[in-house]
Each structure stands twice: as C-alpha cells, then as structure tokens.
C-alpha cells in the first residue's frame, strides 16, 4: 500500500523541476564527487599494497592462486561469513512465501528440451572444472557454484517433473553442507592448532579443496532455490505461512 502511494506520488511529481529533497541529494552527490576527485588527484602513484606480503606467504597457503590463498587461508573467516549470508538469504525467502505453482498452459517445445539435455552436463562439468581450477588460476567456489546454480535454473525453467519430486530434506541437507563443512573445518583447526581456520601443516591444500567443493554445491543450490522463489510445496515442516 505504501509503495503504491509512493509511486503515485512520484509520477505526480515528475513534471515538477526539483523538490528540496532532490536538491539536498544533488548537493551531497556533488560534494562526494569533489571529495573523490581531490583524493584521486592526491593519490600516490604506486602504493605498496599487500601483494608482497601475500607472495611471501604463498608457499604456506597450500594453493598456487593468490586470490584463493587470501580468500580461504589468510582471511578464511571472511569467506565463512559470506557463505552464511547466502544461507540466510534462502532462509529469508523460504519464510516469506511458498514456491508458486506454475500455471503454464503451453507445453515445452522439444527444442528447449534438447538444449537442456545438451547444456546441463556441460554446465556441471564446467562448474567442477572451475572449482578445481580455483587452486592455481582464476576460479573457485563462488564461480563454480554460480555455474552449478545455472544448471539448476535451467532445469527449473524447463519444469521437469523429477526436479519438483526431489525431497525437501535432501535440499535442506545440500544447503547446509557447505557452511557445516566450513564450520567443522574451522573447529577442527581450532582443536588441532588452537587458532580458528589456521590449517595444520601440510593439510591446507586438501582442506581448502574440501571446503571449496562443498561450498560450491551449497552456493549452487542456494541460487537455484532463490530462483524457485519460495518454500517448496511438499515441505514437511508446515508453519503458518500463507
């Protein structure tokens, strides 16, 4: 209701030149631009950054790619919280609405089914390739997970029967697989070395690969379920959601 009123107000105000709020905003933006411009002009030509520090620690990190080393070894807790944010997003969407039942009358053309049959295996293959490549080149859990999620979206768009028949408990397990593995590894590291996410010597490479794989599965499922747009119909835990 409020948003409708707001849009109507905006459409009425469109022909007025500027109101005071817009002027204030314009002023703030101009101030910000001037500030950024001054900073940019006084910027030193070459900043040392943290590249040298990362490069000197690279050997201990267990991976060859500096980006993955920073994400999962030197600043592992940051990535842990990011994965948690994605899980929270799904929980939020599921608590808001149920997944809509598609009322599509036209049937799916065979061309689309052909595309799904051809592309889905390639998508899964490329997702695995990107996760594996994350240890030495560009790639990693987020990129691989996004491709995996794209495969899920492709299957959801094509409205296959078996994709609706997947038990919800399995989806829930898949969703928490990545975060749980991450937290489990962190606790294991805490137990062994006495420091959160400080991997024991020699095992860093394997642990990072384990975390990346499980997180990629969870991220992919998260994105596909966000596309689904709500709690699946046959959920066992029936609350009072409309």
């Amino acid at each position: 209701m409020r948003t409708e009123k707001k849009t109507r107000g905006q459409t009425q105000n469109r022909h007025r030149r500027f109101d005071s709020f817009q002027l204030l905003f314009l002023f703030l933006i101009i101030c910000l631009t001037i500030l950024l411009g001054t900073i940019l002009c006084n910027f030193p030509e070459s900043t040392p950054g943290l590249a040298d520090a990362v490069a000197s620690q690279q050997k201990q990190s267990g991976v060859e790619s500096p980006v993955t080393a920073v994400l999962l070894n030197f600043r592992g807790y940051d990535t842990l919280l990011e994965v948690m944010v994605l899980l929270l997003a799904v929980i939020g969407v599921w608590s808001l609405a149920r997944a809509p039942v598609s009322k599509q009358t036209t049937e799916i053309s065979p061309v689309q089914m052909g595309v799904v049959r051809l592309l889905t295996p390639v998508l899964c293959l490329v997702a695995a390739y990107l996760v594996w490549q994350g240890s030495h080149l560009a790639g990693g859990a987020f990129q691989g997970g996004a491709i995996f999620g794209a495969a899920g979206v492709l299957l959801l768009v094509s409205e296959l029967d078996w994709i609706r028949a997947i038990p919800v408990s399995l989806l829930r397990i898949g969703l928490v697989l990545g975060p749980l593995t991450f937290v489990g590894t962190a606790l294991y590291c805490l137990f062994i070395t006495g420091d959160l996410l400080a991997y024991p010597e020699g095992t860093a490479g394997w642990l990072i690969l384990l975390i990346e794989t499980s997180c990629a599965i969870s991220i992919g499922l998260t994105l596909a379920l966000l596309f689904g747009g709500g709690r699946p119909e046959d959920d066992v835990f029936n609350g009072d959601i409309p």
């Binding site: 053309s109 061309v111 689309q112 052909g114 595309v115 592309l119």
Partner: peptide, 10 residues
Amino acid sequence: LIASSASCHL
C-alpha cells in the same frame, strides 16, 4: 551455436 539457434527458434 546451440544457445543462439535454440533461443532464436523459441
């Protein structure tokens, strides 16, 4: 090729 031909047909 697969993507563009299929989507253009659709």
